[in-house]
Design a protein around this nucleic acid. Structure first.
Lengths: 344, 344
DNA sequence: CCCGGGTATTGCATCGTTGCAAAAGGCACC
DNA sequence: GGTGCCTTTTGCAACGATGCAATACCCGGG
């Protein structure tokens, strides 16, 4: 049951434990004769270093944790993939955990009995936890935050400019000549910072264009899932004067909204144009294909991982906010059925 | 930098290290007086147990690894979510890794320098690695395999009955009166075991119904992504006599195929009916909503995690194949536009 | 033949925790 | 008052690896 240890190999090769260690690590020179003998013993006994022991001794585990609300939300899955790739490039592996958007779960993560001590650092996509709590709880575990959640400079933080992104999305709809533009996804309560920023951007665009804001066209949703997008859309369709375009705060809401529109026989984009945010792969193959504001996930992941590792190594500058790039990807849901499908 | 240790707390409370440990673990009785004093010291110094040290001492890490080809493939993301939930119920956390379907990466996972020793067990969804390699490389690391990949009883293994599932999918299309049924997703080469099983089921259904198999309607795809589904569909549409139904080997292929159909102006299901496999959430909100054979992912996850932990604890029966349940979920892509959208 | 200087090898301590078993303390009973 | 038993507390060793510094070895030069 127990694995082979350095001691076993040493005994077998007739050398000291330390010499075997030297052969394994290659840091200290070892004579050809002994190296050969030791390597043979390593092979024969199929030695694998016990990483737990190594980690204890070295004081580092080579693991970082990525904590997201839900893994089966495509944005997070796609981001996770990029984070894993970025971390691997630095020799780190990634432990994934999901909080289900449950504040309790987020707090537990940082609590007394948390596993946080097993990781060299934490990438956190916080949903409900406050800056205050975070500050008081993360005792010198390096942390980098992902996504907007208003923070005051205590933490490194990687996100897109949500206000600008929302403004550009709305401006795109305005540029099509639409004037009754609805917004789906506001969260006007304490933990909906990201949503609130997007609402600000939406208002800015309308105001700049001189279009009055109709508060009835701003539909809040409790979460950013397809189902709530469909529900909100149905409510909007029931209005005496329905909108002619929809800005959804993420792609899942948009896909739900389009589902409701299609079922209701409304033509997209002819009757109502739809735009989302996130740039998930799903939107490329939806019918119609979804126009979206796509954050550069690979860039976000690289920046976040790079920053986290700098914090771990103690070479990081003081905490700062890093704005990640994004781009508008125009597809059928705002541009008619002309755009060709693109291969992956 | 270094965290507070038991030694620090002990010094502060004026007791032995061991007593502090007893208070922290609660396993051994401690007098009220000392407990109070120790707890105060724990609070003041904000002690967090060093899990790496604890793991080394206990010989267990409480971590299992889940290795999948790609995290941003919805099926795996959804499965991962269930695995994390199931593992948590047993007090385990899950480390996620992806191999990108790269055999090298899979092999590296089990090699000399792998991190496998950090985990109590491995859940592996192998894509290209062979049973032979696996057997020779996994030295007493408990392993449970997910998904079909032909194995000969050396490993615990959780999967649906792919032949039966494919047969039922095809039979569903037959029951609609369709006779020219195409199959998208065959992989007639060494590492495409899952696909090959589905092809067998497809053939069985046709044969039982007395429908001759048209080899030209079986379209292989290198991978199970939306893009390849669309590509395959285009090829089928170019046939002199196109099919009237499509069995796609997974939902992503089906969504790609539907995308191509919609662009080509083909009506679904009126002209061509489409069915997939996997039961991913995306299919509920696609236009049209996708009929699918949905494996019970929660059940798969619970069974796999439960089995793995049994292996870890040494209480597992000998390796066996465990067949997970699945069900046919009929939606618009085979049943017209009658089915109501269901909330999540 | 002895010594200096470089390289190769080794022993010891340590990372922070827990298992084990012995020591210390308290109490009741003879 | 001494003995034995039970409870609480403690010391020591160990998990398996690596950092440090001391030792052993080898060679050339005086």
């Amino acid at each position: 049951m127990a694995g082979t240890t350095l001691r076993d190999v040493a005994k077998r090769a007739g050398v000291s434990i330390r010499t075997v260690s030297n052969v394994v690590n290659g840091s200290v020179p070892v004579s050809d004769e002994l190296r050969t003998r030791v390597q043979a013993a390593l092979e024969e006994l199929d030695y694998r270093p016990n990483l737990v022991a190594r980690n204890l001794r070295r004081g580092r585990t080579g693991m970082i944790a990525l904590v997201v609300p839900e893994l089966d939300v495509p944005y997070f899955a796609e981001l996770a993939r990029e984070v894993i790739t970025a971390a691997r490039a630095h020799g780190y592996v990634v432990m994934l955990d999901q909080t289900d958007g449950d504040g309790e779960r987020e707090r537990e993560l940082l609590g007394r009995e948390s596993r946080a001590t097993m990781f060299d650092g934490l990438l956190l996509s916080p949903l409900t936890i406050s800056a205050e709590e975070l500050r008081s709880r993360t005792n010198r575990v390096p942390v980098v935050l992902l996504g907007e959640h208003i923070f005051n400079g205590d933490f490194h933080h990687v996100a897109i400019d949500n206000i600008a992104a929302a403004r550009e999305a709305t401006e795109h709809l305005l540029s099509l000549g639409r004037r009754r533009i609805a917004a789906i996804g506001d969260q006007p309560y304490s933990t909906g910072e990201t949503a609130q920023l997007r609402t600000i951007g939406y208002r800015q665009a309308l105001e700049r264009a001189g279009v009055p804001v109709d508060e009835g066209l701003i539909v809040p949703t409790s979460r950013f899932h397809r189902h709530f997008g469909a529900e909100a859309m149905e409510r909007l369709l029931a209005l005496p004067q329905p909108p002619d375009a929809i800005f959804c705060y993420n792609d899942l809401l948009a896909i739900g909204a389009m589902h409701a529109l299609t079922r209701a026989g409304v033509r997209i984009p002819d009757d109502i144009a739809v735009i989302g945010v996130d740039g998930i792969q799903e939107g490329r193959y939806s019918s119609p294909a979804l126009t979206t504001v796509a954050p550069d996930k690979a860039r976000i992941a690289r920046t976040a991982v790079g920053t986290l590792i700098a914090v771990i190594d103690g070479t990081a500058p003081p905490p700062a906010e890093s704005k990640a790039p994004y781009r508008l990807v125009v597809r059928e849901s705002t541009a008619g059925h002309a755009a060709p499908a693109r291969p992956r």
